[in-house]
Every structure is written in C-alpha cells, then in structure tokens.
C-alpha cells in the first residue's frame, strides 16, 4: 500500500443552517479499500458527495476543512475543473443503479458514449466489451444490446461498475453498492470490487451500513455517528477489538451475534436529527457507559491502546485514563 492518495481533514458541511458533517478526517492510501460505516443521518453520504464534487447540487456547502487528492484540493475545484477529475480519476458507483442509466438507450451505446467522452478509444465497441469482461459480465455481446430495464439488479450494478472504470480511475467511491441486492448477488459484487482493487491498484471508498460487508472487503474502516468520526482504524482491529461503545453496540445489535434463545442487545433511542444540538459526545444520550463529562465536551479522536492507526473518540477509550 502506497502513500496517502486522498486525505480528508476536518471536513464540515452545512445545509440549511445545520451541520450534518462535523470535523471528519480520514485517509485513503493507494490500493486501499476504506469502508465508511454509518446509519441514516451519520453524514456518510454527504461526505462522499463532497469528495466527488456533488454537494452543491443538493444545497450543501463545505464550511471548513480540506480534501486533498494527489495534491489537488478537491473542495476548491470549479465545475469545469471537476470534469477533469470526475470519471477520470475519481469515479462514483451509486446505490440506485437505475439512476445513472438512460432508460431508452441501449446499454452498449451508453457505455460507448461515455468512453468517447471520458477516455476515447480507437474502437469504443471493443473497449466496451473489454470493460464488461473486466466486471465478469456473462454474455457481454448480448448484454450490450439490452435496455436498462431488461437487466437484473446484479447485472445493473456490474454495468455501473463498468461505467466507473471507463476512465481508469485511481479511486472509486461506492455508495451502498450492494444494499439493493440479494445476499447471493451482494457477495459476487463485493468479490468483484475486491478483485479489481487488487488487480489494478485501485483505491475504493465503500460506504455501507453493514458491518458484515466491512469485514468481507475493507482494509480499514471509519465509523461515523451523527456527522462525526467516532472510531477508525484497520478493519480487523476495529471489528475485533472495538474501542468505542457505539461500535461495540453496532456489532452486538446484529441478530447473528447471539446464540439461540439469547436476547439481542439493542441500542436504546434514536440517532440525533437536525433539531438535536447537544454540546457533548453525540452518542452519550444512548450510551450505557456515559458519564457526566460525556455530556460536557466532545471527545477528540485519539489513539487507542497505543496501537498506531486505531483511533476512537471516546473519553472512556483512552489508554490509562479509564480507571473503571
């Protein structure tokens, strides 16, 4: 794994007088797969929109922080400059795979047009076939002649990945790429992403709410809650020895973690919305271990147990600090 390809520092986003993303920092190294995990309203999707230049279309704006991609400050790019980056160096795989396709144009023609626009090839048709082979699409010639509505969910998601690969990008941002898919297909798509990542030294940001998916493919993971990063680090460390109570609770809340007859440990309450503006740790109201100081100030991300790279934002996770 190389040096850091994308470095996001203290990113804060504002929408209609509300800050749904606050001081988010994370890094993506060359060839790395980073999972961003969070629930509804955690700010994970907005963070991705900010680093793909799609935030303004939704009425949001970056109020603080930076996002440097290979020396480029992504947050100051104009729409025209984005044309040079989006699709060519950073690609997006959306969640709803119908959204990106023109319903009345054959898949092949759409792919060829994208090839002509993004990365002209001598023979766009041949390149389109190559891309479908690349994403292991069976019967590629046949598929190129189909209309989007004739594709199954799994095929569409493969096609969307093929579209993302047109410009041979260095980074793919996949926003819940498998949420709408059946479990058996989900596994295939995840494998494909993993394989592409290994083959072409591609970096992947995988946005998901499913910790199982993280375990399956991610090298490192950033857990977000209420617009903040609460825990981050190598996936095996974070999932194997979680330091933040929220991460622990998420892992314990999965029905597969309990044996027959045991009760699930649900997290009480709800994630905060635009109206909740607490001054302390955002998870404190739902946290079983919360103490007085948790409501007073927001804990910063700090190294856990002197393990480099494993960070948590919790007063109780600090090494040596937690007498209890």
């Amino acid at each position: 794994m190389g040096a850091s390809l994308l470095e996001v520092r203290d990113l804060a986003i504002e929408i209609a007088d509300w800050e749904p993303v606050k001081d988010v920092s994370f890094e993506v190294a060359g060839g790395e797969c980073v999972a961003i995990v969070g629930e509804t309203g955690s700010g994970k999707t907005l963070t991705c929109r900010a680093i793909t230049g799609m935030l303004r279309r939704r009425g949001g704006s970056v109020v603080r922080g930076s996002a440097r991609f290979d020396g480029i400050d992504l947050l100051t790019l104009t729409e025209r400059q984005w044309l040079e980056v989006r699709g060519r160096r950073i690609s997006l795989v959306p969640q709803s795979s119908m959204a990106g396709l023109d319903p009345i144009m054959r898949v092949g023609r759409q792919l060829e047009e994208t090839i002509r626009f993004i990365a002209p090839a001598d023979d766009p048709r041949k390149r389109a076939r190559e891309l479908l082979d690349h994403v292991h699409m069976a019967r590629a010639d046949e598929v190129l002649r189909l209309y989007p509505h004739e594709l199954s969910g799994g095929m569409r998601q493969r096609i969307m990945i093929a579209f993302a690969l047109v410009g041979r990008p260095e980074l793919i941002v996949a926003d819940e790429p498998t949420t709408a898919l059946d479990v058996t297909l989900q596994r295939n798509i995840l494998r494909l992403l993993k394989e592409l990542q290994a083959e072409t030294a591609l970096s992947v940001i995988l946005v998901t709410h499913d910790l199982g998916v993280v375990e399956e493919v991610a090298d490192s993971v950033t857990i977000m809650y209420a617009g903040r990063v609460v825990e981050a680090g190598p996936a095996a460390k974070v999932l194997g020895a979680p330091a933040h109570p929220y991460t622990c609770a998420l892992l314990a809340a999965r029905p597969l973690t309990v044996g027959p007859g045991e009760e699930l440990l649900a997290i009480p309450g709800l994630p905060p919305g635009p109206a909740d503006r607490a001054s302390g740790c955002p998870f404190a109201p739902r946290c079983a271990r919360a103490q007085a100081r948790c409501d007073e100030a927001v804990p910063q991300l700090e190294t856990v147990d002197d393990l480099p790279g494993h960070l948590a934002a919790c007063w109780l996770a600090r090494s040596g600090d937690d007498a209890a």
């Binding site: 929408i15 209609a16 509804t40 309203g41 999707t45 009425g59 919305g273 635009p274």
Partner: peptide, 12 residues
C-alpha cells in the same frame, strides 16, 4: 431518501 426527509422540512 431517509436523509432528505428532514431536509425537505428545512427547505424554505
């Protein structure tokens, strides 16, 4: 989407 639900209410 679930995210846009609260935002729609904020929009003037």
């Amino acid at each position: 989407s679930a995210l846009e639900r609260p935002l729609a209410r904020l929009r003037p």
